[in-house]
Computed example of a mutant assay.
Amino acid sequence: MIKQNRRYAPFLDTAQKISAVLIAMGAFMSVPVVILFNGFLGYLDQSAIPVLQNGMWVYLLLFSIASAFAFALIVFMPSTMTMAVRLNAPGLPHPNVKRACITTVLVVIVILVGLLWYRESWLAIAMISAIVLGALGGAWAAIGFVPSQKRFWAFIVGFGAMALLVMVWTASLFVLLAPLAQSIAGNCPNLAAVALMLLLVAMLVVSIWQPVMGILLGLLLTVGWTAQQASPDGGIMIASALYTANLGGGRPASVLQPSDAGEICNLGVAERPVLFFEVKGCSRPAAFARLRSLAGKTSMERRRIIREWTALVEQHRPKVPSH
């Protein structure tokens, strides 16, 4: 019956091919995920968990793929700017589209960096100025600096939305890439911030001028970001997956909680707990702060810190009355 149904057979055939590709990708990526997860446990001075005795591998794999995919979507957004403008203004020459998009981007970045570098409290003024001037600059560049056309105000609205998008994109990637930039720059945080901002501006310009090159740079950046975040030393991808699925990563431990303020949290997993006492409770920021406190330490130093956490947990564990 399926063979004779010409309407649905192509869809079934396509679904079978896609499912085979997804299964192959999952099998290929499961090996590094297993290695990374066991590396995360080793980073916490815990032994590895055999694959056959643990049911969280699929979730960790899907979480890692979804995180990398979401990051790639954010990185690729500037490559769609010229296409969006051409769809909304089909008669606009392509050189004008590129010039207008780049003008909006540069105006927004210059105003934001200039005002915030001068005075950080001027965030609202910097954002409003960047949107308004970025919209005006993009509109003038789009219509050839002749603001007498009827579509001028429509262009202002469109490039104002683009200016807002550029601000959100820049702020999001700056936060996401800050750990990677700091790990490369070492003890030079100012140099890391300047280099990261220049990289984002270059990505914006390249993605607008040559979208294909922007996509290639985005792929390279996605690979670097995923590798850094999946690394036990400084990365939080595995801990984020465990925390999100309530499998550990900083969640409350499966032990009797103390009666006073605070909670006993587990940074590892249920099979290999790494306990610490946190006055503010088992929140995600507190767990990741604990994980970052181990970064850059030797194995002996990490073991000492974990032993201190365990000793503090024993102090706050409720005392069982003896009979």
Rank of each mutant, 00 (worst) to 15 (best):
L173C: 07
R151V: 10
I128R: 05
L60M: 15
P189K: 10
V97G: 03
L61E: 07
A178G: 05
A270K: 14
R251C: 04
G42P: 06
I131G: 04
G138Q: 01
A142S: 12
G268R: 00
F155G: 13
L196N: 11
A72C: 10
N266F: 09
F159Q: 04
Q182D: 10
S240T: 12
W140K: 08
I18C: 03
W117R: 11
L73M: 12
E308M: 10
V274M: 14
N96W: 02
A89Y: 08
L133M: 14
V85Q: 04
F40M: 07
P273V: 10
E308F: 03
M56A: 15
C188E: 09
V320A: 09
V194N: 06
A72W: 12
S30Y: 01
F145A: 01
I2H: 01
R304F: 08
V166S: 06
K319D: 01
A195R: 06
H323Q: 00
R307N: 09
C282P: 15
M81C: 11
K297C: 05
M213K: 06
Q228E: 07
N266C: 13
V279W: 02
F174T: 15
I236E: 11
S231L: 03
I102P: 03
G224I: 10
K98V: 14
L180Q: 10
F37C: 06
R290P: 00
S64E: 02
Y243F: 15
Q229N: 15
T14W: 05
T103Q: 05
Y8A: 07
L191W: 07
P93S: 09
L73I: 11
A126W: 03
L115N: 04
M83F: 13
A100F: 07
G214S: 02
Q182H: 13
R7G: 00
F76R: 09
I111G: 03
Q53F: 11
L44F: 08
I156S: 01
C282N: 08
G218P: 00
I215K: 15
A163S: 15
P318D: 01
L133N: 11
G26Q: 08
A181H: 02
A192C: 06
S183I: 04
R119H: 13
K3E: 05
G248D: 01
F276L: 09
V75K: 08
L219M: 11
A192K: 00
A192F: 04
S322W: 03
S47L: 11
P232R: 12
G296Y: 04
F28V: 12
L176V: 06
Q228S: 13
G55K: 13
A163W: 01
T222F: 02
V166K: 05
W140V: 01
A130S: 15
T104G: 04
P321V: 04
L60T: 08
